[in-house]
């Protein structure tokens, strides 16, 4: 059964002067537990597609169904709760909050989850930091960490809420090959050991080859 299903998705960016078709008639079905990579040249709509899957953006037309729930017509609060419970994000530039320490960064998704006490949040954050091998860095600031460590913190943050789906937008794009390999190994473990569904945007053919399936885009269109 598909955990992510996009049907006839179109996305048009409009300004006063220009209209850009970022995605055109995209149909995607991703099964639960699949590790999928999205590839294509720059500007082909990979990140736009990932943002739509992650409910960070809305399609101009078409339907998005995640875990059996249609995204259309969801109110802001319902969509936020859905993202919080079902989706975890890993960004190319990590997007950690520099004014907070590692532990607080990882706790972030749990702040918006009802019914969790402060100690439960901290325990969960420590647990995932342990998993990504950074428990010894929990009171450091992101600025005190290497790029690879920052990305592992970002993965820990994505894992903190125990989401079924992890969406990674070029997670190794800012890392050297050794650190990139470490991150890929970690994502692979999350998929193979936990059964989490992972959708990853990448430019790297070698890394894409490690995933179950590759979705290719060209000028906003899905190509085989």
């Amino acid at each position: 059964m598909a955990i992510i299903e996009l049907k006839e998705v179109n996305k048009v960016f409009r300004t006063d002067e220009v209209e850009t078709q970022a995605l055109e008639n995209v149909n995607i079905s991703i099964a639960k537990g699949e590790f999928v990579s999205i590839m294509g040249p720059s500007g082909c709509g990979k990140s736009t597609l990932l943002n739509i899957i992650g409910l960070l953006d809305t399609p101009t037309s078409g339907t998005v169904t995640i875990n059996g729930t249609m995204a259309a017509n969801m109110k802001d609060s319902a969509m936020a709760a859905f993202r919080n419970a079902k989706l975890g994000f890993v960004f190319q530039s990590f997007h950690l909050i520099n004014s907070l320490n590692v532990l607080d960064n990882v706790e972030l998704p749990l702040l918006y989850r009802h019914g969790l006490s402060g100690s439960e949040r901290t325990a969960r954050a420590k647990e995932v930091l342990e998993r990504v091998g950074l428990s010894h860095r929990m009171y450091h600031r992101p600025s005190q960490l290497s790029g690879g460590q920052c990305q592992r913190v970002a993965i820990a943050r994505a894992l903190a809420g125990n989401p079924e789906i992890i969406l990674a937008d070029e997670p190794t794009g800012n890392l050297d090959s050794r650190m990139g390999a470490e991150v890929m190994q970690l994502l692979g473990e999350l998929n193979s050991q936990d059964g989490r569904t992972i959708v990853m945007v990448t430019h790297n053919d070698d890394q894409a080859a490690l995933t179950d399936r590759i979705i290719r885009l060209y000028d906003g269109r899905q190509v085989m």
Partner: peptide
């Protein structure tokens, strides 16, 4: 603005 976007991505509602 980046931090606020990240918070929203991880489930913070507009009201929150």
């Amino acid at each position: 603005v980046e931090e606020l976007g990240v918070r929203r991505a991880f489930g913070c509602t507009r009201a929150q």
